[in-house]
Simulated scan of single mutants.
Amino acid sequence: MTDTGTATTRRGHTTADEDVSQRLLDSAAQLSYDPNVEVDWAAPLDPAHYGLNPEWSTLYGTRLWREMSEHQRVVLTRHEVGSIMSTGIWFEMILQQLVLRDQYLKNHGNAEFRFALTEIADECRHSIMFARACEKMGVPHYRPTRPVAEAARAFKTLATGELAYGGILVAEEVLDVMQRDWMRGEEVLPIIRATSRIHVVEESRHMKFARQEIRERLRGAGPVRRHNSAFGTAVAAAVILTSMVNKRVYAAVGLNVERALAEVRASEHRKAMMRTSSAHLIHFLGEAGLLNRPAVRIYQSLHMI
């Protein structure tokens, strides 16, 4: 028993944790979407509509952006959102393996177990939805680099507890902020607005679950474990965020790739948008005790702080 009399299992799972999972299950039962029905896949794409709000383009505000034609800007944003969706599919496949491995042989009578499987079902639908959106826009499959793919293979095999859920939360939190803008963007393709709305609603439950799992796993954790988990989560963030927009998107619209990358790295607007998309995540990591000096240095190098 805890000090407050709450029933506790050996690994710290409490009835309060079960209550959170049950509320998330109830929410999923009441508010879930079928992308096959909710998205108008047959509608033609307006050639004037962007793939994402221009402000979220990696080149927005740069000299190169000002030199680009309007057609190039539109096509670039479609490739950028396609790259982000491809990264989303890649990471959702990692996420599903992490959650399945975490729930292996767990008590299937618990709400935590049932919601974990509900989350996996959601992620399967999301990946299919993203793949279909990329196909509709004519965007190729943007894959992570081989070193990143192999590092991720190790992460999905070895990461456990708060480190696994920390990596999950990083990907979900940053994309959530972006998509909340995209789903309201009047200049954004309707299929992107619709897929963003679905993802935002359903991922809000996944983020609550990940935050709860992180808090639970860190109960009673010592300083060495917290230090290692903080650093590991930051490394995962670096891998995920640097893989979101593939450099091949610039070649796809006829731009010089090296110049484009240089302007992205120097863009103060881009750095500000990264800080905006990371604010909630960084606040939570601080509250959870997953910010230390090595982690902060990594987040600063990513312009998340």
Rank of each mutant, 00 (worst) to 15 (best):
E162L: 00
N107D: 15
E18S: 11
E258Y: 06
D102S: 15
L290S: 01
Q97R: 13
M85C: 09
H126V: 10
E80S: 08
R73N: 04
S229F: 01
S86N: 15
T276V: 10
Q22D: 10
G138A: 06
I84H: 05
N110I: 08
V249E: 05
T118K: 14
G286L: 04
Y250D: 06
Y33W: 15
S69F: 07
P35G: 10
S27M: 11
T15A: 13
E216W: 10
S21E: 02
T157H: 07
M273R: 13
H227Q: 03
S277T: 12
R66I: 01
T157D: 12
E18N: 07
M68V: 00
R10P: 00
R275A: 15
A159C: 07
A262N: 03
L64H: 04
Q179M: 15
Y104S: 12
V253P: 02
A151Q: 13
T77V: 04
I94N: 03
Q97F: 06
G166A: 02
T14R: 08
A221I: 03
I191V: 13
R211P: 05
R63W: 03
E150S: 13
M93Q: 13
L64Y: 00
V177I: 14
E80Q: 11
A149H: 10
V264G: 03
D34N: 13
I298T: 12
Y142W: 01
D26M: 04
R248E: 13
T242P: 08
M304D: 08
A272L: 11
H199C: 02
H141G: 00
V174G: 01
Q30Y: 02
T118G: 09
Q212G: 15
T276A: 07
T9N: 03
R275F: 05
C124Q: 09
E186N: 14
D46Y: 06
L302R: 06
H280Y: 11
A295R: 05
T15M: 10
L59D: 05
M137E: 14
M273D: 00
R211G: 02
E187Y: 08
I214H: 05
R143G: 09
R180E: 13
I305L: 13
F155D: 10
R146D: 12
A116W: 09
H206K: 09
A7W: 08
E213V: 03
M273G: 05
W56L: 14
E135G: 02
Y299L: 14
G222F: 03
M93S: 11
A194H: 13
Y60I: 05
D176P: 04
L218R: 06
A43Y: 04
A43T: 14
E287M: 08
K208G: 07
H280D: 15
Q179T: 02
T195L: 14
F209G: 07
R270A: 12
L290C: 01
R225H: 12
K271M: 11
R205F: 01
L31I: 06
G138S: 08
G109H: 08
